[in-house]
């Protein structure tokens, strides 16, 4: 299995994967530092005027890019939404992190008993969890909005967190229970002999052992929340509470907006999450590959 592939083929595959997965993102990085008029002008090389960071300056300081002030530039190309990107990143981080933590906190115990115990109504509750995401979210927007309104949470991050948490929970429970089931029985028998209560076996043995898998599952909940658009859109209030998916959609739907500014927004939105994902993923993959679960 570990027989080495021809180094050329390895390189080829790796390049293909990098280009396919990362290509569009690399494009946005390039697009963010090249002004529109150079981009649209086939006769000029992409970097013929060097790198241009005006759009970044605009997003963070509000100072308008020179190129849009001169030559009767279309003012509509500048969108206020771009200025909301940094703030929305912060909002999204709060929402997605909360949803992730809540998912693990609420979902892990359920996943544990599903994976390791037989109990009354197990099949019924499991089927309920598995089938609940079947209904398309868009059909539930109105009633869920009404419920969140009744709770007085419309326009707050708490409302969005609640919806995102509930949306990700079935998957969290399903994925985590697969991981908990893989753990060897003998460890839990040893724990039972060592005077562990059910909760202690879960808390002190199962959870630390499944840490990489818990990380992967948490990442999933985080991503689900971070990229969710519809409920974020309906439930978020003014610009100060909007998550990044809503702000980016507003920016993207504006057909006049400058490519360069749009790409800048995209790139700024990607970087912090990318850092987080790389960090968590390293931990998850290395944990999984080193077989920490198997002991």
């Amino acid at each position: 299995m570990r027989r080495n592939l021809n180094p050329f083929l390895t390189f080829l595959f790796a390049t293909l994967i990098v280009l396919f997965a990362g290509g569009p993102v690399i494009l946005s990085a390039v697009g963010s530092v090249v002004p529109d008029r150079i981009m649209m002008d086939a006769s000029k090389g992409l970097f013929s005027e060097g790198l241009n960071f005006e759009t970044y300056r605009y997003v963070f300081t509000g100072q308008l890019p020179d190129s849009y002030l001169a030559e009767n530039a279309n003012r509509a190309m500048i969108s206020d939404a771009a200025r909301q990107v940094p703030r929305s990143l912060l909002n999204s981080s709060v929402i997605a992190l909360s949803s992730m933590v809540l998912n693990l906190l609420l979902g892990a115990p359920a996943a544990y008993v599903f994976a390791r115990y037989v109990f009354p109504a197990k099949k019924l509750t499991f089927m309920f969890l598995i089938l609940s995401p079947l209904v398309p979210a868009v059909a539930l927007v109105t009633p869920i909005y009404m419920m969140i309104q009744a709770l007085g949470l419309v326009g707050t991050q708490a409302g969005i967190i609640l919806v995102h948490t509930a949306k990700a929970l079935p998957f969290t429970v399903l994925i985590l229970s697969v991981f908990f089931r893989k753990m060897p029985n003998e460890i839990f028998e040893a724990a039972a002999l060592d005077h562990c209560s059910r909760f202690q076996a879960f808390w002190r043995i199962a959870l630390p052992l499944a840490l990489p898998s818990v990380g992967a599952t948490g990442l999933f909940a985080f991503m689900l929340s971070y990229s969710e658009y519809m409920f974020s859109m309906v439930l978020s209030g003014d610009a100060a509470t909007r998550p990044v998916s809503v702000v980016m959609a507003a920016l993207a739907r504006n057909t006049d907006v400058s490519w360069s500014l749009l790409n800048t927004g995209i790139f700024i939105a990607i970087v912090p999450t990318l850092v987080l994902v790389v960090f968590v993923w390293r931990f998850v993959v290395e944990g999984l590959l080193s077989g920490a679960v198997k002991g």
Partner: peptide
Amino acid sequence: GIAMVFQSYALYPH
């Protein structure tokens, strides 16, 4: 009042 030694040892890896 018993203690058991398992075939796979069942040590806690963490």
